[in-house]
């Protein structure tokens, strides 16, 4: 039950793009076609799950731990450590995928390098270890490992839903006659605004 609330909250209510403003660059950048949007989302679910798993363990067993007989809290190194780990992880996923599953690599490979600078990955890793989870009917608490991984994979799924909807709309927009000054990014942003307005309807369901 609790996992269900976490999933709904992450996918719809706190949608990563439309209400938390993470991962806007790929949201605007790779949303011209539904098929590429789909590939990007799949790659992101994989990377965000893995990244949160690793960074959660690093936060709780490396940055806050007893070293040399002294209790230490070096969480101020969080940003540097997390981004390096994420960059290395993405590279590793790329290399492994190329070796063991070339077909999947063909489909997702080109998106992987872009993911390092997708702020949704770093954002989610930092959020799950620093902020308490809160939703209606659940007392707010720090998430444990399982919840953290589920939460950030759900965030990635929320990203997927938003970007696929958005790409569908943009494919239609290509065919319509848009005033010159609105062409390109401006009309995309306005569309995204309307989509965000629609997602606000989910507020309060959990």
């Amino acid at each position: 039950m609790e996992y269900l609330i976490i999933i709904i909250s992450a996918v719809f209510v706190n949608n990563v793009v439309l209400s938390q403003f993470l991962g806007i660059c790929p949201f605007l950048g790779v949303s011209k076609k539904v098929s590429t949007a789909f590939g990007m989302s799949l790659a992101l679910v994989l990377v965000m799950g893995l990244a949160t798993l690793v960074t959660y363990l690093i936060q709780n067993y490396v940055l806050i731990n007893t070293w040399f007989g002294e209790k230490m809290d070096i969480t101020f190194m969080q940003t540097i450590v997390f981004i390096l780990v994420i960059a290395a992880l993405v590279q590793m996923v790329e290399i492994i995928l190329k070796k063991i599953n070339p077909t999947l690599y063909q489909a997702l490979g080109i998106f992987l390098p872009l993911i390092t600078t997708n702020c949704a990955v770093l954002g989610a890793s930092i959020l799950v270890v620093t902020k308490e989870f809160s939703a209606k009917g659940v007392e707010s608490h720090m998430m444990n490992l399982g919840e953290s991984v589920v939460y950030s994979m759900s965030l990635a799924i929320g990203f997927g839903i938003a970007i696929i909807l958005f790409a569908g709309m943009r494919e239609q927009l290509e065919l319509s006659n848009v005033p010159k000054a609105l062409k390109g990014t401006p009309i995309a942003l306005i569309t995204a605004g309307l989509l965000a307005l629609a997602f606000m309807g989910f507020q309060g369901i959990v």
């Binding site: 403003f21 990014t185 401006p186 942003l189 605004g193 309307l194």
Partner: peptide, 14 residues
């Protein structure tokens, strides 16, 4: 709120 951010940026770009 969130939707306003997209709308304002969009129209400023126009």
């Amino acid at each position: 709120l969130a939707p306003g951010a997209f709308l304002v940026l969009g129209y400023l770009m126009v």
